[in-house]
Simulated assay, not measured.
Amino acid sequence: MSPRDLEPSLVPELLVSEIGASVDFWCGLCGFEIAYERPEERFAYIVRDGAHVMLEERGVGRNWLTGDLRQPFGRGNNFQIGVAEVDSIVDALRGADVALFMEPDNV
């Protein structure tokens, strides 16, 4: 098996308001790690338990804008992310007063 076989077939790229705050949320609270980043483009590629996500700051780099953006970004999107252990993430989010839209499914 080649390293390419281990890469996911789909990696969402999320446009964010401030890369530092987003990295703090995803890595600090949700336990992701930065696989690589392009600081000059305000871009971070993050991973956890086989889940991969790209974060890119709005207005910097090569944003894929198809229309006007209004906060909160991502309305109507739902991402299912499988992790080995979810309770510590939920505890960290609650400890940071982050409201959950819905309780996670422990499948």
Rank of each mutant, 00 (worst) to 15 (best):
D5S: 15
L55T: 01
A51W: 01
D87S: 14
L55F: 05
S17C: 05
C30Y: 00
F79K: 01
P39K: 11
G95L: 14
A51R: 00
G50C: 09
A84K: 14
I46K: 10
L6S: 04
P39C: 04
R62F: 10
L100N: 10
E33A: 13
E57P: 05
V107K: 05
Q80D: 04
D87P: 07
I89M: 15
G20P: 01
L15M: 14
D87Q: 14
G61W: 08
Y36I: 04
G82Y: 15
E33D: 11
V47K: 11
F32K: 04
W64V: 08
V60F: 12
V53E: 08
L65C: 06
D24L: 01
V107A: 09
E18I: 00
F79A: 09
E18A: 14
G28D: 13
G82C: 13
S88L: 14
G28F: 11
L6A: 15
G67V: 04
E37P: 08
M1R: 13
P3H: 09
D68G: 12
V83A: 12
I89W: 07
L55V: 03
L65I: 12
V86P: 06
E13V: 06
R75E: 14
G67Q: 11
G61L: 00
A92W: 06
P72T: 06
S9E: 12
L14V: 08
F32A: 04
M54H: 10
V107W: 14
Y36C: 03
L65F: 03
D105L: 13
D97C: 10
C30G: 00
F43D: 06
F101L: 11
F79Q: 05
L69T: 08
A92Q: 15
V47H: 04
I89A: 07
R38G: 00
L10K: 09
N78I: 13
C30I: 02
W64L: 04
L93E: 05
S88H: 13
P12C: 11
G74M: 02
V98A: 10
P3C: 08
E56D: 00
P12R: 05
E13S: 05
E103K: 11
S9N: 11
E57Y: 00
G76K: 11
L69M: 12
L14W: 00
M102D: 02
Q71V: 11
E7T: 08
T66Y: 08
A92D: 13
R42I: 01
F101Q: 09
C27G: 07
R42Y: 01
D97F: 06
V90T: 04
R58M: 02
C30N: 01
N63T: 06
F32Q: 01
V98E: 02
V90L: 06
P72H: 03
G59H: 08
L69E: 12
A99R: 14
N77H: 15
E18W: 05
V83P: 06
V86T: 15
F43M: 04
R58Q: 12
A84N: 15
E37Y: 00
V23Q: 03
A44C: 10
P39N: 11
M54C: 06
D49V: 09
I19D: 01
C27W: 04
L15Q: 05
R42C: 04
D91P: 03
N63C: 05
D49C: 05
R62T: 11
E41N: 06
R48I: 00
M102S: 14
N106H: 15
I19N: 03
V86H: 09
F32S: 07
